[in-house]
Computed example of a mutant assay.
Amino acid sequence: MDEVDASLDEANLRRFAELVEEYSQNIQIVAITHRRLTMEKADIMYGVTLEEPGLSKVISVKLSEWE
Score class of each variant (00 low, 15 high):
H34E: 02
A6E: 13
F16D: 04
D9K: 10
E21Q: 14
A6K: 12
I32D: 03
E21L: 11
K57P: 00
S56F: 10
D2N: 10
T33D: 05
N26I: 11
V30P: 01
Q25G: 05
S24E: 00
A42I: 05
A11G: 00
I27T: 08
A17L: 08
G47A: 12
T49S: 06
R35C: 04
I29Q: 01
M39S: 12
N12F: 03
N12E: 10
E18W: 04
Q28K: 08
D43W: 08
F16Q: 00
E40K: 11
R36K: 11
V30N: 08
Y46V: 03
Q25F: 09
K57C: 04
T33M: 03
K57M: 03
G47Y: 06
N12I: 06
N26H: 09
D9V: 07
A6W: 12
D2M: 10
A6D: 14
V48M: 15
T38P: 01
Y23I: 14
L13G: 01
E18Q: 13
E10D: 09
L55E: 11
P53K: 13
S24I: 07
G47I: 11
L37D: 03
E22H: 14
V58G: 13
E22P: 02
L13N: 02
I44A: 02
E52Q: 14
A6I: 06
G54W: 08
E52F: 04
I29K: 01
H34M: 11
D2G: 06
F16L: 05
A42H: 05
V58S: 13
K41R: 15
D9R: 14
I44V: 14
I29T: 14
Q28H: 09
E3F: 08
L55A: 07
Y46E: 01
I59F: 07
I59K: 11
L37C: 00
R36N: 06
V30R: 06
N26K: 13
Y23M: 15
E52S: 13
A31I: 12
A42Y: 00
D43N: 12
E3K: 05
D5T: 12
V48A: 10
G54S: 02
Y46M: 05
E22Q: 15
A42C: 06
E18N: 14
G54H: 02
Q25D: 01
E21F: 15
T33A: 05
R36S: 01
A11C: 02
T33P: 01
M39A: 08
T38K: 00
K41G: 08
E52K: 15
E52H: 14
I32R: 12
S7I: 04
N26Q: 05
L37R: 14
R36Q: 11
D5C: 05
M45Q: 10
L55C: 02
D5Y: 05
F16E: 02
D9F: 07
A11Y: 08
S56W: 05
A17Q: 04
P53L: 13
I29Y: 03
E18K: 13
V48E: 07
